[in-house]
Design a protein around this nucleic acid. Structure first.
Lengths: 166, 166
DNA sequence: TAAGATTGATCGGTCAATCTTG
DNA sequence: CAAGATTGACCGATCAATCTTA
């Protein structure tokens, strides 16, 4: 991040504070995700993406949702959501049923096995989130982090092939 | 994250502030990485992992490093680093030479093409980091974020199959 | 035996192309 | 044609097993 380009000299390279903030943020999220994914797959039969999808679905009365809305809520690309749902169907965690209102679409719904899986996995996962993240931060820091995250998200559009969440 | 488990009632679920902070942080890092990766691959022939590896290597005099040290510095698993280096060798960005001091190890070094690639890609990438991250935050927020990240990293160990960075 | 590193299988994610219905 | 969704090819990441040298 500090090589000097040949012709164009107009680049504002990162200052030490900026570089520190950026690099530590990057390493943090990589490590955090790796740790939580590992934790989840040793304590349950769910992958991290599986977990996130099940939470989004069970968050909602009826526990079913359009593929595209799922993508929007998770900030995922639509094809990513589609592939993930396909894998989860093959694992018996969700099922798809055609949408009567709009026959182009499909509804994704949680199976009984899916309900059981998320219910069993949640306590251990939440503990891990507390242990690695929440409980290490002060109330002030949580507020700061929330504000920073939501501010930044406001300036980043939705993914390419994706509708916006409601 | 709010299903109530059958037997064990001792789980401390997340409060609203905690949930907000956690979810927004998660969506942020997912979106940010996706955006930067996309940006990089449209403006250059480097993937995001390629870029990170080249930065780590060119950061150091001689621009070469052991595979394991590379993994340590990036917070990666050793096999991840190995696979990545293999791919980069096939793209002509780096090369491996046997390490005379310890013949078990291999040194990874940047090729001329690798130097050119990182030099060409850096300005556009740094601009994107500024546009999506740095320039949207106040100095205070940068400090807070750096402090939060480093504090959390201090409580998360290194990845499983990986040595610690120096 | 342990340390440095690689390999192969498998899962996850992205892109571009495609299919079907509105 | 546009919108909802799927598919296939390809790159990335992880885990467990393996190979070589200390």
């Amino acid at each position: 991040v500090q090589e000097v380009p040949a012709g164009s000299q107009e680049v504002r390279w990162l200052e030490p504070l900026e570089l520190d903030a950026w690099r530590s943020f990057q390493v943090l999220q990589a490590r955090l995700n790796a740790e939580l994914a590992r934790d989840l797959s040793t304590c349950s039969d769910l992958s991290y993406p599986d977990y996130v999808v099940l939470v989004a679905l069970t968050d909602r009365p009826g526990a079913q949702m359009r593929v595209q809305e799922l993508a929007g809520r998770l900030g995922w690309e639509k094809s990513r959501a589609s592939h993930q749902v396909t894998r989860m169907v093959s694992r018996g965690l969700v099922y798809k049923c055609p949408c009567r209102a709009d026959r182009r679409g499909a509804l994704v719904a949680v199976t009984e096995q899916g309900r059981r899986a998320i219910r069993d996995a949640a306590p251990s996962h939440v503990s891990a989130v507390r242990r690695l993240f929440i409980d290490l931060l002060s109330r002030d820091q949580l507020v700061q982090l929330r504000d920073i995250s939501t501010a930044l998200l406001g300036h980043i559009g939705a993914p390419e092939g994706c509708c916006d969440g409601p």
